[in-house]
Nucleic acid binder design. Structure first.
Lengths: 132, 132
DNA sequence: GTCCTTGCAAAGTGTTTGCATCAAA
DNA sequence: TTTGATGCAAACACTTTGCAAGGAC
């Protein structure tokens, strides 16, 4: 018996919140942002719904940065710059890798490559300006 | 006044242990592996020493996989294949990215790129064989 | 009325830390 | 003897979960 997804005002608000920003928010960021507007929201609900959206592919997780899972409203292929200074995550438009690179990885490992993730490390524009 | 690093049998064993494998171990893996041989070893010591090695650049952390930090004895540039099935991390030799890719990322973000990390996702050789 | 969703709080999990004790130099 | 290293357990931070109550359909 399949579980039927019902509608919920809080669930909508959580998705809307993630989609409202390109800051690649954490669960707690979403919670803090919605709390004033929805005083009886609980952090568990935010975690539950983010996990659900992620599982169904509505949003993505870009992994753990500094111990915090970061979510991404974008689900199209692209990369990120992670600022070493302030932990900001900045989108970088998709760039093609040479076709041969995945083939080579598959050859070396003997495994099957289904995807890849390119992540840049450095300073975001703000931190770069500050550290001048 | 600078802190002088003393010699310690346990610290040596921890580094030796990480260097003995290419499985990209977790703190707990190292602990479990050394415990029989060093019964009075404590997990805290493993964490403390791994953090120390990582900070001084003796080993690297390749990040968090499935909630566990994974360490790498290799400090030279290379990539990894992360198996979606068994979470195994397999080394992939360094492959050159087109020079323009970092420049493009810097241009797009306005930041400074100091490095990049290319990670492959898929199945390791064993899981690929099993899932045939 | 059914059953999904939520709040709440407790439990989980990986990691860090304070402090008394141990051991290297 | 001095001072860094360690064991132990408590503290931490983030996340997940169980359960009773609330809300969608």
């Amino acid at each position: 018996m399949e579980q039927v997804r019902k509608h919920s005002r809080k669930r909508d608000a959580i998705l809307r919140c993630v989609r409202s920003t390109d800051c690649h928010p954490t669960a707690d960021w979403v919670f803090s942002r919605l709390k004033p507007e929805i005083p009886d929201l609980s952090l568990g609900t935010v975690y539950r719904n983010l996990a659900m959206f992620k599982e169904e592919g509505t949003i993505l997780s870009l992994g753990v940065v500094n111990g915090l899972e970061r979510f991404d409203r974008r689900i199209d292929p692209h990369s990120h710059l992670i600022c070493q200074c302030c932990s900001r995550v900045v989108d970088v438009e998709a760039m093609d890798l040479p076709e041969t690179i995945c083939q080579e990885a598959a050859r070396q490992t003997g495994g099957a490559i289904t995807g890849w993730k390119l992540q840049f490390v450095g300073l975001c524009d703000k931190c770069k300006a500050t550290q001048k």
